[in-house]
């Protein structure tokens, strides 16, 4: 198996608090990996370090795109640069552009794939118009994949909760990532929506060949879809392994249930 992301001795300190403490982790190409742990364990902070929202205090994150030989260090880079290298994410507390339509949310994700500059915007030449038409169509296709196309012209803030979570995924997909980081994608969803989400994630992996790393509290979802699970508690990695291994691990049981 090819490793596409490697986290090496990563630490993040806020004030005196070690939110992440020497974490090591690696993601295999094409896998669905889960990151679990009690609330406040540092899972989202880890996502923020990977995607560049925070600069890690020490340690490094490096990626190796599928088909590439050399791995490159991405920790410390700006979020937009990291995104352009092929890492896209969703947010735990939904951060959609709520006053924009569903279509526009996805179009924003395709922003850096477009070339139209200011002159193009002012003159509205044929190239610019064609490009705009293409981005609208591409965005619609992405919405179709996530089964959101019936909401295409709705305002994002008017969507039902589950659809908003899926729109977050669609928006992340529109940046053409090879690695997708999902931060609690099933939070607040009903069982039916969760089932649908499970299908979507499986489809993204099998059809789009996207590797997935997700943070999730819904254990049945985690155990169903992921091949590999990492468990963090108090900023430390306390266990890793297949779902069955993790389930039996005494440290994990202790972390979740207390002593």
């Amino acid at each position: 198996m090819e490793k596409i992301m490697e986290i090496d001795n990563l630490s993040m300190v806020f004030g005196g608090l070690k939110a992440i403490d020497n974490v090591n982790m690696s993601i295999n190409s094409g896998a669905i990996t889960a990151l679990i742990g009690p609330n406040g364990a540092g899972k989202t902070t880890l996502f923020n370090c990977i995607t560049g929202v925070y600069k890690p205090t020490s340690g490094s994150v490096s990626i190796k795109k599928p088909g590439q030989k050399e791995s490159e260090k991405i920790s410390g880079l700006k979020p937009h640069i990291i995104n352009r290298k092929g890492l896209a994410r969703t947010f735990q507390n939904i951060r959609l552009f709520s006053n924009m339509s569903v279509l526009e949310n996805v179009m924003v994700g395709r922003h850096h794939k477009l070339k139209a500059n200011i002159m193009g915007a002012l003159l509205r030449d044929r190239k610019t118009r064609e490009e705009e038409e293409k981005v609208v169509n591409d965005s619609y296709e992405i919405l179709k994949k996530i089964n959101l196309h019936k909401f295409v012209n709705e305002m994002a803030r008017n969507l039902p909760y589950g659809a908003q979570r899926r729109l977050e995924i669609a928006r992340a997909l529109s940046t053409d990532p090879f690695l997708l980081l999902l931060d609690e994608p099933a939070a607040g969803m009903n069982p039916l929506e969760t089932r649908e989400l499970e299908d979507t994630i499986n489809r993204l992996r099998s059809e789009e060949k996207i590797t997935i790393l997700l943070i999730e509290h819904d254990m049945s979802l985690v155990m169903n879809i992921s091949e590999h699970i990492y468990v963090v508690d108090y900023g430390k990695m306390i266990a890793e392994g297949s779902p069955d291994e993790v389930k039996r691990n005494p440290d994990v049981i202790k972390a979740y249930l207390g002593e």
């Binding site: 806020f14 004030g15 989202t44 923020n48 929202v53 925070y54 947010f91």
Partner: peptide
Amino acid sequence: GRKENQKV
């Protein structure tokens, strides 16, 4: 002053 960290 202390650095303000944005919550995400």
